[in-house]
Nucleic acid binder design. Structure first.
Lengths: 206, 206
DNA sequence: CTAGACTTCAAACGCGCGTTTGAAGCGCTA
DNA sequence: TAGCGCTTCAAACGCGCGTTTGAAGTCTAG
């Protein structure tokens, strides 16, 4: 059961996120979802129209905010006038880390995202690239200004690797668990530092 | 229709590989598989017992050989006495790349593998880690011997990032589309070169 | 030629799927 | 209180799922 005081739509989205992460889009049924959300089966089709559209909305709910925070952090980094590769990557990584660790269900969403990468479904891929492709472009542009000597194609490859590494590392099947005697906050901070160091070095590769 | 002169078992495995890559394990049905393989529906349960076991056999067929070739390449790199980070990572990546490009259906298998990483299913993950976990350990050990100054925790973080990036790069999802006028083979080889360069730099980060 | 093991076949099993339906419940304002 | 949207409900729809069954086909050894 998921947070009975939330709205029906929110409860469906949360339950769907968790079950899609665990069983995949085809593997999780609407009956499982509505049962976990403590909601009538027909509520999904009433509020979302179809299962396919529910999947899209699961992405939209998290990605809209993630996108906004990333672009905002990017803008701040550029406005400060002290932009380095490190601060740019921090602007990209930190919002995702916050989502994965702060939010209720955020880590489930990271696993859903990892599944989306493995999906070859055209509808879903088009939805994602249409709605959120501009974020990657904005960061690519900022990084390009900072490293004009790096060709466009290698740059895009490396950004691609960075996105993949971040997504897979943040889903909880990654090997690294929080060590005992360290707080979640410290763990997240540590992950961000390690990741930014790794990604910057990768970007600066000869 | 898939290669009518192959045995029933082989035709089922090939069709299953292709369809699991395209629609996922839950999303591809045995009716789709047997229809694509030009084989009777009951043949799956006769030859493999169940759908779950068919999934395992799809992995076994490719991973047994992939594992052997990776460990062999690793051994050669160490025996040659000129082992570098680059040669180690090449030993890991190249067999996968050859599988993806040489073999009929190999690229489909790479997408299946990406799906397996995103799966949370305990049965499948246990099967994979029981049978093939030792490969990753062997490479981690070799890298540690080559970079003894890198602490264990940062090393594990970076290997985690690299696994994610590799998985991501091997599935075809990435933002990078194959440029027109370049073959699939060239595209993948280029990806491997870019990947090894990126991963080595990341491992060597200060 | 034929007995017997192995393989393929069409048909059916019960079940859970996504979706639809029409009635019932609810919270407003008039 | 009556009327009216919006939301929830139980029930049902047709369909495709994984699996099972028993008969028919195929091949080889005696």
């Amino acid at each position: 059961m998921i947070h009975p005081h939330f709205s029906t739509k929110e409860r469906i989205l949360s339950a769907a996120e968790e079950l899609f992460a665990r069983h995949g889009f085809a593997g999780a049924s609407l009956r499982q979802v509505t049962s976990a959300a403590n909601v009538n089966l027909a509520a999904v089709n009433y509020h979302f129209g179809s299962k396919d559209n529910l999947i899209n909305e699961v992405f939209r709910r998290r990605l809209d905010e993630l996108t906004e925070r990333r672009l905002q952090a990017l803008q701040e980094a550029r406005d400060s006038g002290t932009a380095s590769l490190e601060t740019l990557l921090e602007a990209f990584v930190t919002p995702a880390l916050n989502l994965a660790t702060d939010r209720l269900g955020g880590s489930a969403f990271m696993r859903v995202l990892a599944r989306a990468y493995a999906e070859h479904d055209q509808t879903l891929r088009k939805f994602l690239s249409d709605n959120y492709g501009h974020v990657l472009k904005a960061f690519a542009k900022a990084i390009h200004e900072l490293m004009p000597e790096l060709q466009k194609e290698p740059l895009y490859w490396r950004l691609d690797f960075i996105s993949g590494a971040l997504t897979y590392a943040m889903s909880d099947f990654g090997a690294i668990k929080r060590p005992p005697g360290r707080t979640d906050e410290e763990h997240r901070r540590n992950a961000a530092v390690e990741f930014v160091r790794f990604a910057c070095a990768g970007l600066r590769a000869p």
